Computed example of a mutant assay.
Amino acid sequence: MRSVYRVLAYLVALEVVIQAAAVAFAVSGLTNWIENGGVLDAAVMQSETIAFNGVIGFIVHGLNGQIIVPLIALLLLISSFFAKIPGGVLWAGLVFLTVVVQVFLGMFAGGIPELGILHGIGALALFAFAVVAARRAEAATSGLEPRASRGTADVA
């Protein structure tokens, strides 16, 4: 079960990379389209006929962020109860909570653009939490505890 936990944690981190790449592709494509004469206004957004190189990035970012990432995070949290990794439930819980916050930030950022800043910061936090969770699983599997939980200090 520790391997499942580790793989799921690394998958969350990978999904953050995919999310960043998808939105960067979308924004780059949209910028190029506008610079070449495309016009983006409410009518175009509501018509759902907008077509530019990169539009798929917005679709991937939205679907991935609202379905795939939450599902993986939920599976990580569930697996954490069985994996018996020191601190594993805590880190999986942080991953899951961060994903929930990210989903809400993404949903409401259209109405409150400043939330986009928090959404970007949240992505970095999610990546870090997922990597820490995965590394704790690796340490538990190899029989090593992470340094912070050993209760000893480094002496130079």
Rank of each mutant, 00 (worst) to 15 (best):
A140R: 00
V12D: 06
G37D: 06
L11T: 13
L74G: 10
E114W: 04
T141C: 05
M45V: 14
A109V: 07
R150N: 05
A26R: 14
T141G: 08
V131T: 07
V44Y: 00
R135Q: 09
A133L: 07
A123Y: 07
F96D: 01
L75V: 04
G54Y: 05
A42S: 11
V23K: 09
S47Q: 07
W33A: 15
A140G: 06
A43K: 05
R136S: 02
S3M: 11
G62C: 12
A26M: 13
L126Q: 06
S79K: 01
A125K: 02
I56V: 14
L124F: 06
R2K: 15
N64T: 14
M1C: 09
H61N: 10
A139Y: 00
I117K: 12
V60Q: 04
L97E: 00
P70M: 13
A109M: 12
A42K: 07
W33K: 12
G88A: 09
V55M: 06
P70Q: 12
D154Y: 14
S79T: 09
A26F: 12
V131R: 00
G122W: 02
A123N: 09
I85H: 01
S79L: 03
Y5G: 04
A134D: 07
V132A: 14
G38P: 06
G57K: 05
I112P: 06
V132Q: 04
T98N: 03
V55H: 01
A26N: 12
M45S: 05
L115K: 05
I18Y: 00
A139D: 06
L97P: 01
G54T: 02
L11H: 04
G29V: 11
R135T: 05
G93M: 10
G37M: 09
I78P: 04
E145C: 11
W33N: 13
V23W: 03
A148R: 09
R147W: 11
A73G: 09
R150Q: 13
A137Y: 01
W33Q: 08
G29E: 10
P146W: 02
L14T: 08
E114P: 01
R150T: 13
G93V: 14
T98G: 02
S79V: 07
A148E: 12
A137N: 00
R6S: 02
A123K: 03
L105S: 07
I78C: 11
